[in-house]
């Protein structure tokens, strides 16, 4: 196996995808969005509870590859208790993180565990699997709850 693929599937990703967090419906959700990857048919739905401007809770539904599940699982943890403007900023950082040039050191410092997603930097065919939940977050936040 190439080092790129070993890095893609690092332990944290395998663990998150095998036991995703915050997976399931969310009855109290104020904001919801779904997105689908036409290439593979994978789909993710995001549910958020916003209180004022703050995301109090987030869950996801959907099935997909390990990268998508890990990304969605980490997302739901990362945005809990976060102002929506900060969550939107996070989406932008993730978009840069998965590009070949990657995110800046300062940005990476804000990401914590989420840096595990940067393995797709060198596996372009799988970039969308990681960004799909974040695109969905963007769409959910744009929705006027």
């Amino acid at each position: 196996m190439t080092p790129e693929v070993a890095k893609l599937y690092q332990a944290l990703i395998l663990e998150e995808s095998a036991h995703p967090q915050n997976r399931g419906p969310l009855a109290a959700a104020t904001h919801n969005a779904s997105k689908h990857n036409a290439l593979c048919g994978d789909q993710v739905t995001l549910h958020l509870v916003l209180e004022g401007d703050r995301i109090n809770q987030a869950t996801f539904e959907g099935d997909g590859c390990a990268m998508l599940l890990a990304s969605a699982s980490l997302l739901t943890e990362a945005v809990r208790g976060v102002p929506s403007a900060d969550a939107t900023a996070l989406v932008d950082i993730i978009r840069r993180l998965v590009q070949p040039e990657g995110a800046s050191e300062a940005e990476r410092a804000r990401l914590g565990k989420l840096t595990a997603l940067e393995g797709v930097r060198n596996v372009p065919a799988r970039r969308r699997c990681v960004t799909l939940p974040w695109e969905t977050l963007d769409a959910a936040l744009l929705e006027h709850g």
């Binding site: 693929v5 599937y9 290439l39 593979c40 994978d42 590859c65 990268m67 596996v123 065919a125």
Partner: peptide, 29 residues
């Protein structure tokens, strides 16, 4: 327990080119 995409990526890293997904035949799938 393993998504076709993940199988495809690991195979590719060993030089093996396969197709994964719906193969332009979504109703059949």
């Amino acid at each position: 327990g393993i998504h076709p995409h993940d199988v495809g990526t690991v195979l590719d890293s060993e030089g093996v080119a396969v197709r994964t997904g719906l193969h332009c035949a979504e109703p059949a799938m």
